[in-house]
Amino acid sequence: MKRSFKQNMIKSGAIVSNGIITNNPVFRLVLGTCPVLAVTTSAVNGLGMGLAATFVLLCSNMLVSALRRVIPDKVRIPAYVLIIATFVTVVQMVLRKFIPSLYDSLGIYLPLIVVNCIILARAEAFASTNPVLDSALDGIGMGLGFTAALMLIGIIREFFGSGSFFFGELAGIKMGWQFSALSDFSMSIFILPAGGFLVFGLLMAAVNALTDYAQKKKDKATQMRKSEIKAKNEIKSEEVAL
C-alpha cells in the first residue's frame, strides 16, 4: 500500500530528527569520536568537518541504497568503503581547491572520514535495507546531528581556548568575532586534546541529563493523561450507574 503524503512527511521528519536528536551520533551513539575530539578546536573547523561528513554521508547512503540489490553480500564492506572513499576524495579535492584554509586545518582528519564509524554504520545498518529517499533523509539527519555536535563542542572550546566566537573564514566569507580582551586569559587546555575530552564528557553528561529530564516529564504527562482518562471513565460509569 502506498503511503499518503502526510504519512510520508511524518516518517521523513522522524528519520531526520532521529539522527539529530534521538540517536545523535556524537552524544548518544558515541560514534566517530576521533575527529570529534581532534578537529573541534574552533567552531568553523567543526562546521566544515560536519558539512564534509554530511555530504559524504548523504552521497554514500544514496548510492549504497541504490545498489543494495546489486552488491553481493560477501563484498558489501569493501564496496561500501570504495564508495565512501570516492566521495571523501571528492570532498578533499574540492576543499583543497576552494577552501584551502579549512583544508589545512582539518589535516589528516579529512581523509579519515573514510573510516568514520558513522558513515560505515549508516551504510550497513540503514542504507543497505531501505529505499533511496529514506536513506538520503537518514544521511541528512545523521549528518546534521554530527555537524551540530561538532559545532557545539567547537564553539565552547574556541571561546575558552582562543577567546573568540566562530572566528575564521569559510569559503571566502570572514565571520565571527575575536575578543582581544580575552586573548590573554584564554585557557590553552581547551585547544589541547585533554580539553576536548573534558568538554565532550561534560556535554554528554548535560545531554543525558536533559534527555532524562524530558523523558521523566513525558512519562509524567502520559501518566497524568492516563489517570485523567481513567477519572473520566469513572465519572461516565458513575453517570451510567446513576
Binding site: L67, I71, V75, P78, A79, L82, I83, T86, T89, V90
Partner: peptide, 14 residues
C-alpha cells in the same frame, strides 16, 4: 565484476 565496475566508475569520477 561488481567491485571492478564500482572502482572504474570511482576512478573516472575522481
Amino acid at each position: 565484476i561488481v567491485l571492478t565496475v564500482i572502482a572504474v566508475f570511482a576512478g573516472a569520477l575522481l
